[in-house]
Design a protein around this nucleic acid. Sequence first.
DNA 1: AAGTGGATCAACCGCCTTGTT
DNA 2: TAACAAGGCGGTTGATCCACT
Length: 294
Amino acid sequence: MGRTPCCDKKGLKKGPWTAEEDEVLTNYIKKNGGHGSWRSLPKMTGLLRCGKSCRLRWTNYLRPDIKRGPFTPEEEKLVIQLHGILGNRWAAIASQLPGRTDNEIKNFWNTHLKKRLKALGLDPKTHQPNHAPSASSSISTRHMAQWEGARLEAEARLSSLNTTKTTHHCDHFLRMWNSEIGDSFRNFHKPDHNQNKNINSFCLSPLSAGSSSNKCDSVSAVTTNAADPFGSSNNAVKQELLCAEEDVVQHHGSDSSCSNDLEDSSDTALQLLLDFPIYNDMSFLEGNSFVCPL
DNA sequence: AAGTGGATCAACCGCCTTGTT
DNA sequence: TAACAAGGCGGTTGATCCACT
């Protein structure tokens, strides 16, 4: 049996794309209002490339919404933050950076950010200090303080918001929770896997556990997970999620309004998830120290 | 000017996931 | 439920550029 090859390798061109090939591919996609089947695209266009190669060229280079040029400090910060949460899940990271491709972010990480973290004495995989004597206790203490700060901040946020706005925030938070970021978080805090880890580890550790499949059980996971991913002290965040659950029950099925909300507030939602003290301390990316130390 | 080595990034490869029959 | 097709993803490679000797 075996898998059929993605394309017949014989007679197919490899290597860099020419301007003519780019033009053929771009024109075809524009003319047809989309790429259709990638596999059949080479036949339709006469390109001597396999469908995969066409897809890659389009998604990584020719797509009109691609953002070119160097990464901004904000983008760099976001990449580091998201890598700390998601690990090497470049596509998931790219989904939070409009106009940037997974390939571009992966290259940028491997050529710039990884070195920068190393130079700062941080393990690029774990985002934790490389040589931390009695690291577990000191980091644990530090994390406790950080998490307590997050808790207080969340409580303050809740108390300052009116009902509508609270629901609004809960909604954003829930959507984040339902995204891959939330999946990663839940995986990381599975009772059988990380019984002793707390939310603060979430702030620092990448989640190499791979993709999860439990995309629909997020709220119940929060409310029933024996590991209590938010820790016993963080009632404010729990409350936000419970609030979000109610919100979803009330608005179940109204996808159109949800998508509009999401469109308007993705930054806010992302910020809610990322808004932990450890990632506010990204001073090494700013000012003079922002220059790559290598 | 030529050689060398590091940095960069576009592109490829193979595996995995998802959808369809 | 199994088999297969197609698309997507992450790791890796290799061509090119550039600084340095």
